[in-house]
Design a protein around this nucleic acid. Sequence first.
RNA 1: AACGCAAAUUGUUCCAUCGCUCUUUAUGCAAAUUAAGGGGAGGAAAGUCCGGGCAACACAGGGCAUCAUACUUCCUAACGGGAAGGCUUCGACAACGGUUCGGAGACAGAAAGUGCCACAGAAAAUAACCACCUCGUACGGAUGUAUCCGGCGCGGGGUACGGGUGAAAAUGUGAGGUAAAAGCUCACGCUUCGGCGUAGUGAUGCGCCGCAGGGGUAAACCUUAUGAGUUGAAAAGCCAAAUAAACUCCGGUCAAGGGCUGCUCGUCCGAAUGCUUCGCAAGAGGAUGCCGGAGAGGGUAGGCUGAUAGAGGUUUCGGGUGACCGGAAUCCCAGAUAAAUGAUGGAACACGACAGAACCCGGCUUAUAGAUUUGCAAUUUUA
Length: 132
Amino acid sequence: MQTLGKEERLKKRKVIEALFKNGKAISANPVRLIWAEMEDKTGKFPLQAGFSVSKRNFKKAVDRNKCKRLMREAFRKNKTGIYEFLEANDLHYSILFIYTQKEIAPYKSVEEKIILAIRRFEEELKKKIEKK
RNA sequence: AACGCAAAUUGUUCCAUCGCUCUUUAUGCAAAUUAAGGGGAGGAAAGUCCGGGCAACACAGGGCAUCAUACUUCCUAACGGGAAGGCUUCGACAACGGUUCGGAGACAGAAAGUGCCACAGAAAAUAACCACCUCGUACGGAUGUAUCCGGCGCGGGGUACGGGUGAAAAUGUGAGGUAAAAGCUCACGCUUCGGCGUAGUGAUGCGCCGCAGGGGUAAACCUUAUGAGUUGAAAAGCCAAAUAAACUCCGGUCAAGGGCUGCUCGUCCGAAUGCUUCGCAAGAGGAUGCCGGAGAGGGUAGGCUGAUAGAGGUUUCGGGUGACCGGAAUCCCAGAUAAAUGAUGGAACACGACAGAACCCGGCUUAUAGAUUUGCAAUUUUA
């Protein structure tokens, strides 16, 4: 399903703070992905995703909303692959997408970069598993 | 008809698919899920500049300080907002009686006090440079020899008409008056204050009378009048879970309590079988510690309420010049919480400006492509 409900989104302030403190980053300009393992593994979904745009880059609330909506839409459509991988290995992660540029890109290029970021994230996880 | 200015209204639409948020119904004890249906950003949601609701805390009375406001009446829950009116002032038409149209005004007090007023100018506030007038005099002239005339200069006095400076120079015009002058006096004006009459709820207008003539600046201090407790939804209230030491209370210390799935029986665990006072003893009391329970407190940014039915919208009737008020009918119209409106494909045209709710209202201010309506003056084209 290509849904993106409440439980799939990053909600808790504590988790977000932990992400910024301990998370590892992957960047695919203009998108930057921060990820970390979840402490709580009872969640229904393998991922909790959040989306963020800095007030420094976009002064107007309208523009920030637009950016977040584009990223959310792109993630919603392209999350199936990573979900299957995580469920197969019984992993729970939280991730946060941050838009780092000062201009709004069209949907198609945002989507490309999101796909790229997810693919790299998956590769990182594979390496980690192999080490073990 | 096009352009300009002012005011008001409006400010992309439709279809399909995938998705977000709230909600209703159905299945269900309930939760979750599924299915079907419905609602889902703005005129400024913005700035957070005023006012109010709401909430917590504070609160004897008076004074001082601070801040805000400042023509009148009305509207309003309230306002620093709005409506109508008055006054001052600018512009246009007009043309010197005034009237009409449009704009602007922190529009109480400068006649309570203090301060300030660049440059220029004599002087920027108990005015006097040039000037005008007058008296005295050095001096000169005339002769009838003690009088007259002149007098650049010097000294005393009077005046503020004229000149020049300036944004501003001591009420304007005319007449009298005088050595020359001056509100010194008079007439007609102007302005301040007071009184009476009249129109008006009132600011104020008009008429008459009296006193006075005073530069500007209060967005300088200040004076007068009126108002203001503080904080701000991360307010505030409730619920759940969990709990170390210390504190308070109650019970227990050869049995309170707990475990063995609920009950009974049984069994196991279980804090001093300690100290001390009285007593021959049985027993009664005390301190400290320990065990169990409760309270209060600390504490966790979990959930719910607050929080979306309101000073509400629409239509209509009545009242009022108007802001607005009253009645009736009808409607329910975002409620998120890392924060919901998007993406893809297609269609239309003017090719879409400024811009995203966060406790809620009433205003103000600022941003804004285009469209529509009304009013205004002038210009061009056509008839």
